[in-house]
Amino acid sequence: MLDDFLARAVLGAVGVALAAAPLGVFVVWRRMAYFGDATAHAAILGVALALAFELPIFAGTLAVAVVVAFMVAKLTGRGFGADMILGVASHSALAIGLVAVAFAQGPRLDLQAYLFGDILAVGKADLAVIWGGAAAVFALIAWRWRALLMATVSEDLAWASGGNPDREGRILMLALAIVVAVAIKVVGALLIGALLIIPAAAARPFARTPEQMVLGAMGLGCLASLGGLWGAWEWDTPAGPSIVCAAAILFALSLIAKGGRGA
């Protein structure tokens, strides 16, 4: 089955959707959307460095995503306006990455594949990386689940109950870097943020507890992946953007459904 490129594409897309969901809800709850973008854009620089030093793409993107996430968090914690720092970081990371790729470029690099994803080229090794990354994100977030929730609800209450919300923030940054590194092949650096946020947003109207929202985001993310791939196959459209389009349609439907119930 894994010899069929379409089967690999489906498994890859579903794996990324599952990895993105438990982190995506935190990105939404903690208003880290811009933060997610900055980290994802930095991954292009990771691609360039990986090529220059002949490292696996996964290692390069993961390393750069971690460094940028922690650097931005440090700067925003120092009293700079968070929005301003993120704006600077997000666009600079992308621009520096694009310039660096131009320097590192060999004849084999298809930049578009890293900006928008190239899911039909997902190989068996990529699948291993995607599902391994998804498992790591799951394990991290499940392990810290209540502490992460507490820190998200109120940092002061977390401190008062003996927790350390700074540490929980670092765990989320690590999980974010992993998601970026596994998702870049599937949806590309520019649309990773969409995959984090839109399924979580679409699940919100139907959730009464945080756990329900994660499960909803997982389900809707998988649905968007399958729907997007089907659309890409049917109409010969780029797969990554098609998946995000499908997620956007699900979000619109969830808004309508919520409006209809008057909830």
Binding site: W29, R146, L149, T152, V153, P210
Partner: peptide
Amino acid sequence: SLPMTVDRFLSLPS
């Protein structure tokens, strides 16, 4: 965007 009942809130962080 964070759904949270009072009961669930009381069971944080343990």
